[in-house]
Each structure stands twice: as C-alpha cells, then as structure tokens.
Design a protein around this nucleic acid. Structure first.
Lengths: 132, 132
DNA sequence: ATTGACCTTCCCACCATGGTAAGCTTTATA
DNA sequence: TATAAAGCTTACCATGGTGGGAAGGTCAAT
C-alpha cells in the first residue's frame, strides 16, 4: 500500500514516515517502478508500534532500541523493563521541575492584584535573582 | 562591561546573550571601537530578568511580552497576571499529559517479569493500538 | 485528454541551545 | 617588546520532532 494509506492506518503523517525512514528508524520500503514506497503488513505493524511509543513520550532514540528488542526473538524482558524505567525516571524529573515552576508561579499570581494597578509583585520577583 | 562578565553576572551564556540580541529580545548594546559589546547596569538587569523568567519556563516569546510590561510604567498588573496564568495553564497541560504517560508506563513495568524471559507485556502493549 | 489526487525529493521553519572555526583585540607574561 | 593566552566578533552547523511548501512525476477517473 502507498504511504498515504499507511499514514491513515497508523496515525503517523506521511512526512514523519519518510523522516523515520531517512533516519534509519525503519528500513527503506520496497518501491514501485515509479518510485512509490510500498508498505506491507509488517511495516504497518512497526509504524503502529512507533505511534504508540511516541504517544507514551519515548524519544525516537529510545524507540529505535525498543524496536530492536521487539524484533529480537531472544530478548530479555529485563532490557525492555530497564529502558522503560529510565524513561519513567526522565519523565519524573521533568514533571518535578514543571511542578516546582507551577508552584512558584501560582504564588506569584496570588500575590498580584490583577487590576489596572501598575504595581506588580510578579515583575518585581522576576527582577531579583532569588525567588523562593 | 564585556559579554563574558555579563554572562557571569546573569547566568546566561555569551552565546545566548548574543542570540537574544539577534532576535530582538534585548536591544543591541553599545560597542567599543573594536566592536565589543558594552553592557551597562540596565542591560544586566534585563538579562537577569530573562534568566529568571527562563528558569520559570517562560518561552522567549512570553518573555518578550513580560519585558515590555516590565519597561512600561503605565502597565496594568492584570496583563502580567493573565500572561502568567496562561503559562500556568500550559504547564498544567504538559504535566497532566506526562503524568498520564507515567501512569501507563508504570502499569506496564509492573506487568513485566523483568527477567531473561523474552516474553514481555510491554512490547505486547506497544504492538496494539489501544493501551488503557 | 485533462484534471485532480497522490507520490517523490529538497529546502526552510520552529525553539532554545551548544559547538566550532576563522579572525581580530586586549591583556598578561617572559 | 615580542609573544602567547584569553576574550571578543561573526558565520555556519547540529540537536529533536514536526510542519510547510515548491517543483515535478504518476496514477486513476472523468
């Protein structure tokens, strides 16, 4: 099937499918005489896998590793597990950082009159090195 | 003072300070005859402001607006407040999305034997369209 | 035969940041 | 004073993941 059809089936844009091929995340497809990519069932499976993994926040680098394990019959599930745990750890760090930001920002908003008064503690706080 | 000194004082790399100037976030500095940028107190203040705002996750676009308000004597604090509220909202959406990912990922990790057994529910889950 | 939908590659853009290279200036040291 | 080191300048390239668009080829239906 053509790339447009593959796109519809997998949720990935044609653009991205071509990109994934160009960076070696998926193998180059077979082509028709005219040069059109030809996607088979196995290709679609992989693309769906990528779509799922992307929606769980894995980087393409991580997805490349996951795909390797997926194809590898004699994998050890602990390798998959460790990879996912690392991703969770990275997610936690980002969530933690953003939650901290949110906390500070909410305190700032609370301290602001939010009126036509030009006096604004938010700007004041941004003007000094340390915000606690 | 030179850009290196400004960098040390503000926490921003020289690279970034030049970049901020190039995109119009800060005004071009005065230059020495040799072409070296010359930073004054007011410049340093603004750079510190940018550093603070970046560390709270504001985009450069948002910081540009904050700087405008900061410089504007007759601002209304509600404009600042609304801008920050929007940023908090965007943060919340990201935190929410990542927390949801984390939840799903933790369930997957829990279901995985994490041994040398090749059978892996994580990979299985990534192979089907719907993960709940 | 023409039209419209689809495909191809190639280049550019975003955002925020870092790296590197080539070349000039300033400062410090031998 | 000569030279070396450190610091400055601009310019280009890279990252990661995605989108946009142009220019051109192909296919199917009218």
């Amino acid at each position: 099937m053509n790339i447009g059809q593959a796109s519809k089936l997998t949720g990935l844009s044609s653009k991205m499918i071509r990109h994934y091929e160009s960076i070696g995340l998926i193998k180059p497809q077979s082509r028709t005489e005219a040069g059109y990519r030809n996607f088979g069932e196995y290709d679609i499976q992989q693309l769906k896998f990528i779509f799922q993994a992307r929606s769980l926040g894995f980087s393409l680098e991580q997805i490349a590793q996951l795909l390797l394990l997926w194809k590898q019959e004699d994998r050890s599930s602990i390798n998959v597990s460790e990879l996912v745990k690392l991703h969770i750890k990275q997610l936690n760090e980002k969530i933690e950082a953003m939650t901290q930001m949110r906390h500070t920002l909410e305190k700032l908003v609370d301290s602001c009159p939010a009126s036509d008064d030009p006096n604004c503690p938010i700007l004041a706080a941004l003007s000094v090195p340390a915000i606690k």
